[in-house]
Design a protein around this nucleic acid. Structure first.
Ligand SMILES: [Zn+2]
Ligand SMILES: [Zn+2]
Ligand SMILES: [Zn+2]
Ligand SMILES: [Zn+2]
Lengths: 158, 158
DNA sequence: GTCGTTGATGTTATGATATAACAATGGAGT
DNA sequence: ACTCCATTGTTATATCATAACATCAACGAC
């Protein structure tokens, strides 16, 4: 379970392989990766950072695509529903999935200094919280796990 | 580790004992539980639900206290800094701490149907995520854990 | 006691995030 | 060609949060 994001890697390969996986997934599941959706994913993939909906929107505007908020939110809804992107609740921002293909419960390491985000994976039904939920009779749909702190680079800078 | 919130209990005792603990804590730490801060805590304590800042604000307004947003946000900043309340990131809302006194890493069970929230406790440095962070050289300050789903009552209703 | 500092509060204005509602388009199937 | 339905475009508005500055009261220094 590597925490992709803080380590150096071949990023253009990282982008193109994820795009290919997204295309395959859409073909298999009758989903349409339209130009604007594909472009949104590319923009998110360009950095291992979370972007706000309005950040995405300004990319769109600069490229002559739609420039009203719903355009960005709809693309993000599609990407998150399909599992191609995740919302970072603690930042009100969105990031491309770093583990496309594996059916995963994401956990994020979020640097509060430089906003870079690494995606790790949690255990499917992590012990304690799952136990508490069961004891309370609570039925879990989705679990948000976000660790806020400092990435290696920003620790060195401090 | 009880997940306080969904089970019936003596709620007025729950409120008054928490308020007393908050007073004690403030006295020990030279913090000022001013009337508006105390009132904010009372309002949050009245329900085991998360309230938005503007919900709190309308209570204030109805009681002749300040009615501009910063009044609510400042009270909430104080309560969260002191550990008397937590922000629920997934709802952009705030809830009184259900485990005041214990030094804890909160985890929440959030009913998406009725918005009620139970507060459980996680292990201090839970295995997997802590391990991933260590491997990445990431220094964790705070962990957000929020489970979204259905509370027992809303499951029955469905 | 007065003065200056400090933290709390009040207020106006604005910024940032997100959705409602409806019109226009355009392909898939008939 | 026609209909259906998902996607996209656009306007307007709702919701969440902070900046900036004025006022005030508590408290210690002098
Ligand atoms: Zn992922
Ligand atoms: Zn960093
Ligand atoms: Zn708590
Ligand atoms: Zn419920």
């Amino acid at each position: 379970m590597a925490a992709i994001g803080f380590d150096p890697h071949d990023h253009s390969a990282c982008i193109s392989s994820t795009l290919r996986q997204a295309e395959t997934y859409c073909a298999e599941h009758k989903l349409k990766l339209t130009p604007i959706r594909r472009r949104a994913l590319e923009i998110l993939l360009a950095e291992h950072r979370a972007l706000g909906a309005y950040d995405l929107l300004s990319h769109f505007a600069a490229e002559g695509l739609g420039s009203a908020p719903p355009v960005a939110y709809r693309a993000l809804d599609f990407l998150t529903s399909a599992g191609f992107a995740h919302k970072i609740e603690g930042l009100n921002a969105y990031i491309a999935c770093a583990h496309l293909g594996s059916d995963h419960a994401p956990a994020f390491l979020i640097c509060t200094a430089c906003k870079s985000v690494a995606e790790a994976e949690t255990e499917a039904s992590d012990g304690r919280l799952g136990a508490a939920a069961r004891a309370a009779g609570f039925q879990i749909d989705r679990i948000v796990v976000e660790a806020l702190g400092l990435c290696p680079t920003c620790q060195d800078a401090a």
